[in-house]
Nucleic acid binder design. Structure first.
Lengths: 149, 149
DNA sequence: TTGGGTGCAAAGGCTTTGCATGTGA
DNA sequence: TCACATGCAAAGCCTTTGCACCCAA
Protein backbone atom coordinates (compact mmCIF):
# COMPACT_ATOMS: atom_id res chain seq x y z
CA UNK A 1 0.00 0.00 0.00
CA UNK A 2 2.09 2.88 -1.26
CA UNK A 3 -0.62 5.44 -0.63
CA UNK A 4 -1.02 4.49 3.00
CA UNK A 5 2.75 4.82 3.22
CA UNK A 6 2.50 8.40 2.02
CA UNK A 7 -0.33 9.01 4.40
CA UNK A 8 1.72 7.82 7.34
CA UNK A 9 4.66 9.92 6.32
CA UNK A 10 2.46 12.96 6.47
CA UNK A 11 1.04 11.85 9.75
CA UNK A 12 4.52 11.60 11.21
CA UNK A 13 5.55 14.96 9.83
CA UNK A 14 2.40 16.58 11.16
CA UNK A 15 3.31 15.35 14.58
CA UNK A 16 6.83 16.65 14.43
CA UNK A 17 8.49 13.29 14.00
CA UNK A 18 11.13 12.41 11.52
CA UNK A 19 10.00 10.05 8.81
CA UNK A 20 11.96 6.83 9.01
CA UNK A 21 11.53 3.51 7.31
CA UNK A 22 11.00 1.83 10.65
CA UNK A 23 8.24 4.14 11.82
CA UNK A 24 6.33 3.88 8.58
CA UNK A 25 6.74 0.12 8.62
CA UNK A 26 5.36 -0.14 12.14
CA UNK A 27 2.37 2.00 11.27
CA UNK A 28 1.73 -0.09 8.18
CA UNK A 29 1.89 -3.33 10.11
CA UNK A 30 -0.68 -2.02 12.55
CA UNK A 31 -2.78 -0.58 9.76
CA UNK A 32 -2.82 -3.80 7.79
CA UNK A 33 -4.29 -5.66 10.71
CA UNK A 34 -7.36 -3.66 11.64
CA UNK A 35 -9.06 -4.92 14.73
CA UNK A 36 -5.99 -6.88 15.63
CA UNK A 37 -4.21 -6.01 18.79
CA UNK A 38 -0.53 -6.71 18.46
CA UNK A 39 2.10 -7.01 21.13
CA UNK A 40 5.46 -5.31 20.73
CA UNK A 41 7.00 -8.64 19.88
CA UNK A 42 4.39 -9.37 17.24
CA UNK A 43 4.92 -5.99 15.64
CA UNK A 44 8.64 -6.66 15.75
CA UNK A 45 8.23 -10.00 14.01
CA UNK A 46 6.00 -8.59 11.28
CA UNK A 47 8.23 -5.62 10.57
CA UNK A 48 11.26 -7.86 10.53
CA UNK A 49 9.93 -9.69 7.48
CA UNK A 50 10.37 -6.53 5.46
CA UNK A 51 13.18 -4.87 7.39
CA UNK A 52 15.24 -7.56 9.09
CA UNK A 53 17.61 -5.01 10.58
CA UNK A 54 15.10 -3.40 12.89
CA UNK A 55 15.75 -3.76 16.59
CA UNK A 56 13.20 -4.47 19.25
CA UNK A 57 14.22 -1.29 21.04
CA UNK A 58 13.11 0.76 18.08
CA UNK A 59 9.75 -0.95 18.17
CA UNK A 60 9.31 -0.12 21.82
CA UNK A 61 10.46 3.46 21.35
CA UNK A 62 8.24 4.00 18.34
CA UNK A 63 5.25 2.46 20.04
CA UNK A 64 5.74 4.79 22.97
CA UNK A 65 5.91 7.92 20.85
CA UNK A 66 2.95 6.91 18.71
CA UNK A 67 0.95 6.10 21.79
CA UNK A 68 1.69 9.47 23.37
CA UNK A 69 0.49 11.14 20.21
CA UNK A 70 -2.63 8.97 20.24
CA UNK A 71 -1.81 7.64 16.81
CA UNK A 72 -2.12 4.18 18.32
CA UNK A 73 -4.06 2.88 21.30
CA UNK A 74 -2.97 0.65 24.13
CA UNK A 75 -4.82 -2.39 25.32
CA UNK A 76 -3.83 -4.28 28.40
CA UNK A 77 -5.38 -7.69 28.90
CA UNK A 78 -3.36 -8.45 32.01
CA UNK A 79 -1.61 -11.37 30.42
CA UNK A 80 1.82 -9.82 30.60
CA UNK A 81 1.70 -8.15 27.21
CA UNK A 82 0.57 -4.70 26.23
CA UNK A 83 -1.16 -4.65 22.87
CA UNK A 84 -1.54 -1.89 20.34
CA UNK A 85 -3.97 -1.04 17.60
CA UNK A 86 -3.99 1.82 15.17
CA UNK A 87 -6.20 4.76 16.01
CA UNK A 88 -7.91 5.80 12.83
CA UNK A 89 -10.04 8.44 14.39
CA UNK A 90 -7.38 10.86 15.39
CA UNK A 91 -6.49 12.71 18.52
CA UNK A 92 -9.68 14.52 19.38
CA UNK A 93 -11.77 11.43 19.59
CA UNK A 94 -9.41 9.33 21.64
CA UNK A 95 -11.78 8.98 24.53
CA UNK A 96 -14.42 7.00 22.71
CA UNK A 97 -13.00 3.82 21.36
CA UNK A 98 -11.54 1.92 24.22
CA UNK A 99 -14.38 -0.54 24.50
CA UNK A 100 -13.55 -4.13 23.97
CA UNK A 101 -15.29 -7.45 24.11
CA UNK A 102 -12.81 -10.18 24.86
CA UNK A 103 -13.81 -13.76 24.21
CA UNK A 104 -12.47 -16.02 26.93
CA UNK A 105 -12.78 -19.03 24.67
CA UNK A 106 -11.16 -18.05 21.37
CA UNK A 107 -9.30 -14.97 22.55
CA UNK A 108 -10.74 -12.76 19.85
CA UNK A 109 -11.22 -9.13 20.62
CA UNK A 110 -14.17 -7.15 19.34
CA UNK A 111 -14.68 -3.43 19.54
CA UNK A 112 -17.99 -1.87 20.30
CA UNK A 113 -19.53 1.53 20.62
CA UNK A 114 -22.48 2.40 22.75
CA UNK A 115 -23.98 5.62 23.89
CA UNK A 116 -25.13 4.05 27.13
CA UNK A 117 -21.60 4.61 28.27
CA UNK A 118 -21.96 8.30 27.71
CA UNK A 119 -25.17 8.27 29.68
CA UNK A 120 -23.31 6.44 32.40
CA UNK A 121 -20.59 9.05 32.43
CA UNK A 122 -23.11 11.81 32.74
CA UNK A 123 -24.72 10.08 35.67
CA UNK A 124 -21.37 9.63 37.38
CA UNK A 125 -20.68 13.30 36.93
CA UNK A 126 -23.99 14.16 38.54
CA UNK A 127 -24.02 11.77 41.44
CA UNK A 128 -20.36 11.74 42.35
CA UNK A 129 -19.14 15.03 41.04
CA UNK A 130 -16.55 13.23 38.99
CA UNK A 131 -15.59 14.69 35.64
CA UNK A 132 -14.80 11.85 33.25
CA UNK A 133 -12.01 12.57 30.80
CA UNK A 134 -11.35 9.11 29.47
CA UNK A 135 -12.42 5.57 30.01
CA UNK A 136 -11.52 2.00 29.44
CA UNK A 137 -14.13 -0.72 29.27
CA UNK A 138 -13.46 -4.39 28.90
CA UNK A 139 -16.17 -7.01 28.82
CA UNK A 140 -15.09 -10.61 29.09
CA UNK A 141 -17.27 -13.46 27.97
CA UNK A 142 -18.14 -15.69 25.03
CA UNK A 143 -18.53 -14.45 21.50
CA UNK A 144 -21.21 -15.38 19.04
CA UNK A 145 -19.06 -17.91 17.23
CA UNK A 146 -18.04 -19.76 20.35
CA UNK A 147 -21.57 -19.78 21.66
CA UNK A 148 -22.74 -21.34 18.42
CA UNK A 149 -20.55 -24.36 18.85
CA UNK B 1 -8.61 -6.35 65.37
CA UNK B 2 -8.64 -9.79 66.93
CA UNK B 3 -12.12 -10.59 65.70
CA UNK B 4 -11.30 -9.85 62.09
CA UNK B 5 -8.32 -12.12 62.60
CA UNK B 6 -10.62 -14.94 63.59
CA UNK B 7 -12.86 -14.16 60.68
CA UNK B 8 -9.99 -14.41 58.24
CA UNK B 9 -8.83 -17.67 59.74
CA UNK B 10 -12.23 -19.12 59.03
CA UNK B 11 -12.22 -17.66 55.58
CA UNK B 12 -8.92 -19.36 54.84
CA UNK B 13 -10.10 -22.67 56.28
CA UNK B 14 -13.31 -22.51 54.29
CA UNK B 15 -11.26 -22.17 51.16
CA UNK B 16 -9.07 -25.11 51.94
CA UNK B 17 -6.01 -23.07 52.82
CA UNK B 18 -3.81 -23.52 55.83
CA UNK B 19 -4.03 -20.73 58.33
CA UNK B 20 -0.68 -19.00 58.62
CA UNK B 21 0.39 -15.84 60.35
CA UNK B 22 1.48 -14.37 57.03
CA UNK B 23 -1.82 -14.99 55.26
CA UNK B 24 -3.88 -13.55 58.06
CA UNK B 25 -1.56 -10.55 58.25
CA UNK B 26 -1.91 -9.87 54.55
CA UNK B 27 -5.69 -10.08 54.72
CA UNK B 28 -5.69 -7.74 57.71
CA UNK B 29 -3.50 -5.21 55.97
CA UNK B 30 -5.88 -5.16 53.02
CA UNK B 31 -8.89 -5.10 55.30
CA UNK B 32 -7.62 -2.18 57.35
CA UNK B 33 -7.33 -0.06 54.26
CA UNK B 34 -10.75 -0.24 52.68
CA UNK B 35 -10.96 1.49 49.36
CA UNK B 36 -7.21 1.50 49.16
CA UNK B 37 -5.56 -0.39 46.38
CA UNK B 38 -2.20 -1.67 47.44
CA UNK B 39 0.64 -2.97 45.36
CA UNK B 40 2.48 -6.13 46.33
CA UNK B 41 5.35 -4.04 47.59
CA UNK B 42 3.08 -1.87 49.70
CA UNK B 43 1.45 -4.92 51.23
CA UNK B 44 4.90 -6.29 51.89
CA UNK B 45 5.99 -3.11 53.65
CA UNK B 46 2.89 -2.96 55.82
CA UNK B 47 3.06 -6.60 56.85
CA UNK B 48 6.75 -6.25 57.57
CA UNK B 49 6.03 -3.80 60.35
CA UNK B 50 4.39 -6.58 62.32
CA UNK B 51 6.21 -9.57 60.89
CA UNK B 52 9.65 -8.47 59.72
CA UNK B 53 10.56 -11.98 58.63
CA UNK B 54 8.04 -12.23 55.84
CA UNK B 55 9.47 -12.51 52.34
CA UNK B 56 8.20 -10.76 49.25
CA UNK B 57 7.72 -14.13 47.56
CA UNK B 58 5.18 -15.09 50.18
CA UNK B 59 3.29 -11.90 49.51
CA UNK B 60 3.16 -12.63 45.80
CA UNK B 61 2.17 -16.25 46.37
CA UNK B 62 -0.52 -15.34 48.86
CA UNK B 63 -1.89 -12.60 46.67
CA UNK B 64 -2.15 -15.03 43.81
CA UNK B 65 -4.04 -17.63 45.80
CA UNK B 66 -6.38 -15.09 47.37
CA UNK B 67 -7.04 -13.58 43.99
CA UNK B 68 -7.89 -16.94 42.43
CA UNK B 69 -10.36 -17.52 45.25
CA UNK B 70 -11.81 -14.05 44.68
CA UNK B 71 -11.07 -13.09 48.25
CA UNK B 72 -9.24 -10.11 46.85
CA UNK B 73 -9.61 -8.20 43.59
CA UNK B 74 -7.01 -7.08 41.12
CA UNK B 75 -6.74 -3.60 39.71
CA UNK B 76 -4.33 -2.69 36.96
CA UNK B 77 -3.76 0.99 36.33
CA UNK B 78 -1.08 0.38 33.73
CA UNK B 79 1.58 2.08 35.76
CA UNK B 80 3.66 -1.04 36.18
CA UNK B 81 2.05 -2.18 39.39
CA UNK B 82 -0.87 -4.47 39.97
CA UNK B 83 -2.98 -3.40 42.91
CA UNK B 84 -5.22 -5.38 45.22
CA UNK B 85 -8.18 -4.66 47.39
CA UNK B 86 -10.14 -6.91 49.67
CA UNK B 87 -13.35 -8.33 48.29
CA UNK B 88 -15.93 -8.09 51.01
CA UNK B 89 -18.78 -9.32 48.93
CA UNK B 90 -17.70 -12.86 48.40
CA UNK B 91 -17.33 -15.12 45.43
CA UNK B 92 -20.74 -15.07 43.84
CA UNK B 93 -20.79 -11.38 43.29
CA UNK B 94 -17.34 -11.02 41.83
CA UNK B 95 -18.50 -9.73 38.52
CA UNK B 96 -20.06 -6.57 39.80
CA UNK B 97 -17.53 -4.48 41.60
CA UNK B 98 -14.77 -3.79 39.18
CA UNK B 99 -15.83 -0.25 38.48
CA UNK B 100 -13.40 2.43 39.34
CA UNK B 101 -13.12 6.16 39.03
CA UNK B 102 -9.50 7.18 38.94
CA UNK B 103 -8.61 10.80 39.56
CA UNK B 104 -5.80 11.88 37.29
CA UNK B 105 -4.97 14.75 39.60
CA UNK B 106 -4.77 13.28 43.09
CA UNK B 107 -4.57 9.61 42.14
CA UNK B 108 -7.44 8.63 44.40
CA UNK B 109 -9.56 5.72 43.35
CA UNK B 110 -13.29 5.62 43.91
CA UNK B 111 -15.58 2.67 43.41
CA UNK B 112 -18.99 2.99 41.91
CA UNK B 113 -21.97 0.87 41.10
CA UNK B 114 -24.45 1.48 38.37
CA UNK B 115 -27.11 -0.60 36.77
CA UNK B 116 -26.63 1.15 33.46
CA UNK B 117 -23.75 -1.20 33.01
CA UNK B 118 -26.04 -4.15 33.27
CA UNK B 119 -28.31 -2.59 30.71
CA UNK B 120 -25.28 -2.12 28.52
CA UNK B 121 -24.33 -5.74 28.89
CA UNK B 122 -27.79 -6.85 27.91
CA UNK B 123 -27.67 -4.69 24.83
CA UNK B 124 -24.30 -6.12 23.85
CA UNK B 125 -25.68 -9.59 24.23
CA UNK B 126 -28.57 -8.73 21.93
CA UNK B 127 -26.78 -6.81 19.24
CA UNK B 128 -23.54 -8.70 19.06
CA UNK B 129 -24.44 -12.09 20.41
CA UNK B 130 -21.77 -11.75 23.05
CA UNK B 131 -22.41 -13.31 26.42
CA UNK B 132 -20.78 -11.17 29.09
CA UNK B 133 -19.31 -13.07 32.01
CA UNK B 134 -17.28 -10.38 33.65
CA UNK B 135 -16.23 -6.83 33.11
CA UNK B 136 -13.76 -4.19 34.05
CA UNK B 137 -14.57 -0.53 33.85
CA UNK B 138 -12.21 2.30 34.55
CA UNK B 139 -13.14 5.94 34.23
CA UNK B 140 -10.34 8.46 34.37
CA UNK B 141 -10.92 12.10 35.17
CA UNK B 142 -11.09 14.62 38.00
CA UNK B 143 -12.76 13.96 41.30
CA UNK B 144 -15.02 16.28 43.22
CA UNK B 145 -12.27 17.45 45.55
CA UNK B 146 -9.86 18.31 42.80
CA UNK B 147 -12.54 20.07 40.81
CA UNK B 148 -13.36 22.19 43.83
CA UNK B 149 -9.88 23.63 44.00
C1' DT C 1 4.09 -37.16 60.85
C1' DT C 2 3.76 -34.68 56.44
C1' DG C 3 2.24 -32.10 52.80
C1' DG C 4 1.53 -27.50 52.21
C1' DG C 5 3.76 -22.90 53.29
C1' DT C 6 7.77 -19.89 53.75
C1' DG C 7 12.34 -17.35 53.00
C1' DC C 8 16.04 -16.58 50.33
C1' DA C 9 18.26 -16.01 46.24
C1' DA C 10 18.35 -16.82 41.53
C1' DA C 11 16.01 -16.80 37.38
C1' DG C 12 12.31 -15.04 34.11
C1' DG C 13 10.28 -12.03 30.97
C1' DC C 14 8.85 -7.72 29.26
C1' DT C 15 10.56 -3.11 28.72
C1' DT C 16 13.86 0.67 29.06
C1' DT C 17 18.34 2.80 28.67
C1' DG C 18 23.34 3.98 27.49
C1' DC C 19 26.20 4.67 23.89
C1' DA C 20 28.24 4.72 19.49
C1' DT C 21 26.70 4.90 14.84
C1' DG C 22 23.55 6.20 11.26
C1' DT C 23 20.42 9.38 8.82
C1' DG C 24 16.53 12.55 7.61
C1' DA C 25 15.81 17.57 7.02
C1' DT D 1 25.66 19.81 9.24
C1' DC D 2 23.38 18.12 13.39
C1' DA D 3 19.77 16.90 16.19
C1' DC D 4 17.10 13.10 16.18
C1' DA D 5 16.63 8.02 15.32
C1' DT D 6 18.48 3.37 15.46
C1' DG D 7 20.84 -1.21 16.96
C1' DC D 8 22.91 -3.70 20.16
C1' DA D 9 23.66 -5.17 24.54
C1' DA D 10 23.22 -4.32 29.24
C1' DA D 11 20.45 -2.97 32.82
C1' DG D 12 15.81 -2.35 35.19
C1' DC D 13 11.97 -3.83 37.35
C1' DC D 14 8.16 -6.52 38.77
C1' DT D 15 7.12 -11.21 39.43
C1' DT D 16 7.92 -16.18 39.55
C1' DT D 17 10.46 -20.30 40.72
C1' DG D 18 13.77 -23.78 42.86
C1' DC D 19 15.04 -25.61 46.98
C1' DA D 20 15.80 -26.51 51.68
C1' DC D 21 13.64 -25.64 55.95
C1' DC D 22 9.49 -25.00 58.75
C1' DC D 23 5.03 -25.66 60.72
C1' DA D 24 -0.11 -26.14 60.82
C1' DA D 25 -3.22 -29.99 60.92
Amino acid sequence: MPESGEQFKNLLRQNGLKVTTQRVAILEVLNNRPGKHLTAEEIYDYVKKKYPDIGIATVYRTIQVLSELSLIDKLNLDDGYVRYEINKKGKEDTCHHHHHLICLECGNIYAFQDDLLEALEKRIADTMGFEVANHEVKLYGRCKKCRGK
